[in-house]
Amino acid sequence: MSIKLNGREHELSADIQNVAQLLGSLSLENRIVIVELNKEIISKSAYADQPVRDGDKVELVHFVGGG
């Protein structure tokens, strides 16, 4: 299946079915990252229960330098 990840098409292997697994596949599980799925913010406690489906739009955002 494929999702739109930070504006780009991203192929997911079949074993990635939830947000926690998606973050793990990107080695982001220990990073400060905020997840927005189809414009809904996903709370950290829901990562393992939140399914990722074909065609989903996922934004992974973080804090960068700014004034």
Partner: peptide, 30 residues
């Protein structure tokens, strides 16, 4: 202060200033 931006997920090893910060001594103002 910090800005909120898309992560460069294809370069996840990039250092991030916030992650090096002692958050007990600093308050974030996004």
């Amino acid at each position: 202060t910090f800005a909120v931006r898309r992560m460069d997920i294809f370069e996840p090893s990039q250092p991030n200033f916030l992650e090096q910060l002692d958050l007990k001594r600093h308050t974030l103002l996004p």
